[in-house]
Design a protein around this nucleic acid. Sequence first.
RNA 1: GGGGAGAUACUCAAGCGGCCAACGAGGGCAGACUGUAAAUCUGUUGGUAUCACCUUCGCAGGUUCGAAUCCUGCUCUCCCCA
Length: 438
Amino acid sequence: MNLTNNLSMEDLIKEFSWRGLLQEHTPGLQDQLKRDKITLYVGFDPTADSLHIGSLLPIIMLAHFERTGHKPMAIIGGATGMIGDPSGKSTERQLLDEFTLAHNISCIKSQLARFLNFEMGNTRLLNNHDWMREISFLEFAQDIGKHLTVNYMMSKDSVKKRLGDSSSKGMSFTEFTYQLLQAYDFLHLFQNENCLLQIGGSDQWGNITTGIELIRRKMGATAHGLTFPLITKADGAKFGKSESGENIWLEARRTSPYKFFQFWINTSDEEAGRFIKMYTFLPKDTINQLIEDHRKKPHKCILQQRLATELTRWVHGEEACKSALSASRLLFGNNPMTSMEVLDDETFLSVFEGVPRAQISIEDLQKGISIIDALVEKSGFLSSKAEARRALKERSILVNRQRIDEDLILGKTNIREKRYILLQRGKKSYFILEVVKT
RNA sequence: GGGGAGAUACUCAAGCGGCCAACGAGGGCAGACUGUAAAUCUGUUGGUAUCACCUUCGCAGGUUCGAAUCCUGCUCUCCCCA
């Protein structure tokens, strides 16, 4: 992505503000940021072995800080991840065992390294387990717990929600303590790394201010907090899930670059306008121009195209982005049929990476397989013959992108190129049959 | 402890002896239209050997030629009075 727009980013707060990345911040932060290059941090929860697009925003925030010469730190919640943050959660969270946690942490570390420059030493990666494990419960009670009242802690939304609602299952002491642990993180980083700012999603505001309060009471010093909005979709649905309800991960093995690309392509006009500001590093002028162009020619999907391209390139690299783009052109372009036939098997596979597939024997194919068997028994693509019949009646089944009838018998002639047959239900659901010798 | 109401498919919700694989709404899927959008319209939404049969209406029994519908017991949920 374009890194050379530092001029417009002299005032980070302003920058965040027009990008829609600013929810709340403590007073005086703006001046502080203009005056000094400060150290700041954001926490990442090691709840899975890959980050998903929900984590993209904090990463982008750190990248903005990195690019303007500040010293960002990504803190992996190796200790706090064992506890679970109650913010925004209505029930007690599952605790993770140590093995899973260690695995998750190492995976997340290597992912973050793709987006942030840890090489130069300006941007760093820490694990809060490293200092959390040093402190005993008694020390914690004495040095930390002393400074904040339970009354203060109870006033936080994350706590109030769980105590007030009679239908909820209550809240364990462990979860109640979470905000203190996070506050201790901030205090520790303030003392040892001269870290002056914690950022996070807007649901973190309560936890961040607890940290600021702890630093104020214990050290008599001023620390800062900044939050960015939590993303909601225009229709109120949860952001970050594909249409089929799967998470969109940053790891190519979990979510193929093609699917990732498609996720952004499928955003609505309004969302695309909002997201391109938040999720790309394109300068203001460029974005305004794009929005203007899009308004004039909405059918071109300029915003969605650019958003998807920029992000796929950033997350998966130039190569993956190109093939995701060409796959999309192929599948949704004007004359997909002809281009399908031209595809050799290798390109075909890369286009349909991540599409479920099954093997089918050449002998069966020689005998001929009814399309219903092919859809259900031989592949498991559809779950019952009744469903297959229904789909065929709806004329929603395609073989090698050609609409077919119920009486089709699959034979050798249906193999495209050398080894594959492409099944399709509707526009977006694909399945690959791989022809093998038995 | 006493009294009452209820449990039906993904969700809500009809049905109260045969015409019930079960009205309707939402959701899902698909088709048309379109910008791989929104809105709209249409079809579809248990299974199989599909003009038929099988399994499904909280669980287990029973009455009946025949039950989601009636009876008995059980489990769970909700409400009212103590």
